[in-house]
């Protein structure tokens, strides 16, 4: 190994050894060729715990190069501790440029959100996935769910959603809402709020999903049809917030509810911190002008 490719941490560039990267890269190519299908891969132990983004980190490490600009978000925010920790990891082992601005990033690793700023051609969105199997909570056995996907037998999922409607008058799934990709595979979009589901549909960005503990990689190529499962009489709908962001005034964005005191005081602010801060900065500029 040349000195140039050794990172600051004394490991190979982007931490993973080349053999592991090749294995992951092959899995990524198959995942892109079969949109929504979960490709098994020999996930490695990473220096962070399973369930904390090891799948996303492995995908990012296999994809990222010295010219990339990396953004890492958790819950939509760049400054949540786990996002900070993963960003610091890549700065150390790959010495890549990092950013908090969605528009500047070439690779965005995310947990639980899709940025509000529309993604563009050439960007790669890497999702951290805890449970990749959308049918897992209906059927815990891998051997069974594999057969369901093979036969395109998704009746169980529709029954579950319909039972929700019968019981609650609506589909009671608010995040990790299942989608059908390119008309074939039912896929778990990771625990993003269903608010974000429409952003996956025909996105110009490449979307890669890594589940480390469960050893699966899957993908949505750009410009791919991604439909949230629904029924004719109960079409898919996203969350709506009654008020705008209290900091930047944005509407039609996903908001966090912030508790202000112990007397029920609360406010709603943008979950996407970069989007919120950019809007506030723009507003200030306008005022100054």
């Amino acid at each position: 190994m040349s000195a140039v490719t050794m990172s600051e941490a004394g490991t190979n560039f982007a931490y993973l050894d080349e053999e592991t990267k090749r294995m992951i890269r092959r899995a990524i190519l198959k995942a892109i060729a079969i949109p929504g299908y979960q490709v098994p891969f020999a996930s490695r132990e990473m220096p962070m715990p399973y369930g904390w983004g090891t799948g996303g980190v492995q995908v990012t490490a296999a994809v990222i190069g010295p010219d990339d600009v990396l953004k890492v978000i958790d819950q939509g925010a760049d400054d949540t501790t786990n996002a900070v920790s993963i960003r610091a990891f890549f700065r150390k082992v790959a010495r890549v440029a990092v950013t908090t601005h969605t528009a500047e990033a070439t690779v965005i690793q995310t947990r639980h959100r899709i940025p509000e700023h529309p993604l563009i051609e050439g960007q790669i969105l890497v999702y951290q996935v805890p449970i990749p199997e959308p049918l897992r909570f209906l059927e815990p056995r891998e051997t069974e769910t594999r057969t369901m996907h093979a036969l395109e037998e998704y009746g169980l999922m529709h029954v579950k959603l319909y039972e929700d409607i019968a019981h609650h008058g609506r589909i009671a799934t608010s995040y990790a809402y299942p989608v059908k990709v390119a008309g074939r595979y039912v896929m778990d979009p990771s625990p993003i709020p269903k608010f974000d589901n429409p952003k996956m549909h025909l996105s110009p960005a490449l979307q890669l999903f890594g589940a480390g503990r469960e050893k699966r990689i899957y993908a949505i190529p750009p410009h791919t049809d991604v439909r949230s499962l629904d029924f004719e009489d109960h079409p898919f709908e996203i969350q709506r917030f009654d008020e705008p962001c209290a900091l930047c005034g944005a509407r039609n964005v996903y908001l966090d509810e912030v508790i202000l005191d112990d007397r029920g005081g609360r406010m709603f602010v943008c979950s996407d911190t970069d989007n919120c801060e950019s809007r506030q900065a723009d507003a200030q500029k306008e005022t100054a002008a």
Binding site: T5, I32, A33, V63
Partner: peptide, 20 residues
């Protein structure tokens, strides 16, 4: 000449083509 970075850039070219 530089296996680590060459493999990364070739992979990205192949991935981009596979995705488009």
């Amino acid at each position: 000449a530089d296996p680590v970075f060459a493999a990364q850039s070739v992979f990205r070219a192949v991935m981009d083509c596979m995705a488009r």
